[in-house]
Design a protein around this nucleic acid. Structure first.
Length: 245
DNA sequence: ATCGGTACCTGCACGC
DNA sequence: TGCGTGCAGGTACCGA
């Protein structure tokens, strides 16, 4: 499930619980995130990294169930449960240099981007549809289907618009909304559409704030028009036909 | 080089 | 009740 806000929520929660503990004799010295990858860092410079894909969960001190793929036991008796209904998620131990290679292939983290940098990135992809770009992890890291839809609604940009057609003011607005919405979603503990749970097994509160995602056929909160859904690059795109041009 | 379509896997909601 | 269809927070791989 998780996109940047969900992985970041789990990261913050886990960091408080497991830093300083030992897993198979290796001391945890940090819990990091890059894009949608969660990274548990050990004192010996190895890293246990996870990608939760659509339905992965990491529950601290959870109870193993039907979809539990792995239980990680810490030296103090606590544990971390990895659940994944659809089995797309993965975890592996990597070295510092392997992790560096993985990170290198990803685009920039949204929060560090300046308007100038973002405008330059957009200018290099004039023909790409804007929603496809937002979800491209090599273009910008961490945004998936939920937040791409919500960000475009907040920016009043139609998902099929081509990047080259965005004006300078729209590009600045878009970057602002990317940061604003991701920040708000982290604050709310992410979005729970169906499977997502945080590291304590709780649902995220941001789903209640979705304005377009999975609101097909319902009224736009701004103008009352009916929210539409189209197919784009194999995914659903939800948008308000009146607000988003 | 960049696009869309498909595959990976399981479960759920819906219509007949 | 049961079956078939379509859909789901992601991404890798394929051929056009």
């Amino acid at each position: 499930m998780p996109e940047l806000p969900e992985v970041e929520t789990i990261r913050q929660q886990l960091a408080k619980q497991i830093v300083g503990k030992e897993l198979q004799g290796k001391k945890v010295i940090g819990v990091n995130r890059r894009a949608k990858i969660l990274d548990i860092e050990f004192a010996d410079k190895s890293h246990l990294i996870f990608h939760l894909k659509l339905t992965g969960q990491l529950i601290f001190n959870g109870t193993p169930g039907k979809h539990t793929r792995r239980v990680f036991n810490f030296n103090d008796g606590s544990c971390l449960i990895f659940n994944d209904v659809r089995k797309f998620g993965w975890y592996k131990i990597v070295s510092e240099s392997q992790l560096k290679d993985i990170k290198k292939k990803l685009g920039p983290e949204p929060f560090g981007l300046t308007e100038k940098q973002f405008a330059l990135m957009i200018a290099k992809k004039p023909k790409a549809k804007i929603k496809t770009l937002l979800m491209d992890q090599k273009f910008i890291a961490g945004i998936g289907n939920i937040y791409a839809d919500e960000i475009l609604f907040a920016s009043r940009i139609h998902p099929l618009r081509v990047a080259g057609a965005l004006g300078p003011r729209e590009i600045i607005l878009l970057l602002g909304k990317i940061k604003e919405i991701l920040t708000a979603a982290i604050k709310a503990g992410g979005s729970s559409v169906s499977d997502y749970l945080d590291a304590f097994g709780q649902k995220g509160g941001y789903s209640r704030k979705h304005k377009v995602y999975q609101r097909t056929g319902q009224q736009c909160v701004k103008c009352g028009s009916i929210i539409e859904r189209i197919r784009l690059a194999g995914r659903s795109a939800h948008y308000c036909p009146n607000c988003q041009k």
